[in-house]
Structure formats: structure tokens, C-alpha cells
């Protein structure tokens, strides 16, 4: 640690260089995801297709799921059985989940048939699949919280499968309190984090061009070049 050294010193090319870990982190983040890529003003012309709207449609449905889920959680797991408003909110919570999965599956089909993992987008593809899997687990815990004979039937069918793989003692589908906590805290947080990472990766690498596009990636080529060595500024 040197007291006489400023946090920022001029580099040879005139670009601000950083010496502290916070500054280095900022420099790395700004180079990988500059503000014009994080919040772009426009998109490439090939994005003008309905097949590109389903990802954001899924995100919109997810936002409503979180809002309606918060109302349901704050009123308790049996409120929607005795309240007209509760029944309405519970119904829209279910239907927004239906839309979330339908949009996500159509998004998956579209991206699969355009081989969207091209151009260094493997991690984007992986986080998308992870979001799908975690969402299925979250929806499963939601079905367990219906507090009716349907949820009881689902729980007692699922417990055999979970016991068979050895996780039944820690993930007990017959324990309403435990499943409620999984459904309203950990799992929504996990979905939100994975979806946020997925969207950030889309911003970093740009929307994947169609297979027949002549250019490999117009958005990346028009952006500032990324240094060959990612950790260059960490030296």
C-alpha cells in the first residue's frame, strides 16, 4: 500500500488506469459492459422480428409473478381461500406463471433453431437453461402451496421421488412451512439472479444474429474492441 500514489494515473494511450481493486473492477466492468451496451439506444435491424420479443415477454411475466407473489405472501398461505380479492390475485399469479413458461419455451425454441450459443454466447445459453430448470423447481413448490387436496396429492407423489434420490430429509415436500420459505425467498431470488445474469450476458455479447445473416455480429463489431487479455488492467 503506497500513500503517495494516487488512485488514478494516466496510461500511455491517455485512458484512465486504476490501481485500487475497486477502480480495477470498475475498469473491467466498463470495458466489458459499457453504458451504451448495458442500456442501448437501438438494436440491429435483424431484431425487428416477433421471435425476439418472447425473452422480454418472459421477463415481464416474471415481474408480475413477483408482485402478485408478494401480495399473496404478505397475506399468508390460506388468504386466497377466503377472500375474493385473494382468489383473483392467486389466479393471476398462476396465469402469469403459465405465460412465463409459455414465453420462455417459445424463446427457447427460437434460440435453439438459430443456434444462439454462437459467437462466445455459451454462458448466455447455459444461464438460460439454468433459469428454466430453477423456474420449474420454483413452480413445483408453488403447486405444493395450493393448500388443497391437489397439493397434497402432488406432495405425496413427489416425496417418493425425492426420498429415492436422498434429499427428502432436507427438502421435505410434506412440510408446508419449509416449502413456503423455499417458494417465497430462496427460489425466486435464485430465478431473479440467474435471469439478471442472463440479460446482462445478452447485453455484453449482443443479440444473436440469424443464421443467414451475412455479418457475424454487427453489434459487437461496432462496439469498442475488447482487449485480448481480460485481466490486462489487473496487472
Amino acid at each position: 500500500m503506497t500513500a503517495d500514489r494516487g488512485p488514478v494515473s494516466a496510461a500511455e494511450d491517455g485512458e484512465a488506469r486504476f490501481s485500487t481493486w475497486t477502480g480495477k473492477t470498475r475498469g473491467w466492468a466498463l470495458r466489458r459492459l459499457p453504458p451504451d451496451k448495458l442500456l442501448p439506444e437501438g438494436q440491429p435491424s435483424y431484431v425487428s422480428s416477433w421471435i425476439y420479443v418472447f425473452g422480454m415477454g418472459a421477463v415481464a411475466a416474471f415481474v408480475y409473478i413477483l408482485g402478485s407473489g408478494a401480495v399473496l405472501a404478505l397475506n399468508g398461505p390460506t388468504w386466497f381461500h377466503v377472500s375474493g380479492l385473494g382468489r383473483f390475485i392467486n389466479s393471476t399469479h398462476l396465469w402469469s406463471v403459465e405465460l412465463f413458461f409459455m414465453f420462455m419455451v417459445i424463446h427457447l425454441w427460437g434460440k435453439f433453431w438459430m443456434a444462439a450459443w454462437r459467437g462466445g454466447r455459451a454462458l448466455t445459453w447455459i444461464t438460460g437453461m439454468l433459469a428454466f430448470v430453477v423456474s420449474i423447481v420454483t413452480a413445483f413448490t408453488g403447486y405444493l402451496l395450493q393448500t388443497n387436496f391437489d397439493s397434497q396429492w402432488i406432495a405425496f407423489q413427489a416425496k417418493d421421488a425425492l426420498n429415492a434420490v436422498g434429499v427428502g430429509a432436507w427438502f421435505n415436500v410434506a412440510d408446508l412451512g419449509q416449502i413456503l420459505m423455499w417458494h417465497i425467498t430462496l427460489l425466486p431470488l435464485a430465478v431473479a439472479v440467474v435471469v439478471a445474469l442472463h440479460v446482462v450476458l445478452v447485453r455484453m455479447h449482443g443479440v444473436v444474429p440469424p443464421l443467414e445473416a451475412a455479418t457475424s455480429d454487427a453489434q459487437l463489431r461496432s462496439a469498442a474492441p475488447i482487449p485480448a487479455v481480460d485481466g490486462e488492467d489487473m496487472k
Binding site: G42, Q43, P44, I51, M102, I106, G110
Partner: peptide, 21 residues
């Protein structure tokens, strides 16, 4: 419904509002 939406998304032209790059 998903299959129908997928096909419609491929064939229905997208409205062009603002000029895109």
C-alpha cells in the same frame, strides 16, 4: 398455443416504428 405463437412470430411482419441502425 405455444406452437401457434411460434409459427405466427416467424411469419407475421414486425411493425417498424423508429429507424433502427
Amino acid at each position: 398455443t405455444m406452437v401457434v405463437l411460434f409459427i405466427l412470430a416467424l411469419v407475421i411482419p414486425f411493425p417498424h416504428g423508429k429507424t433502427r441502425k
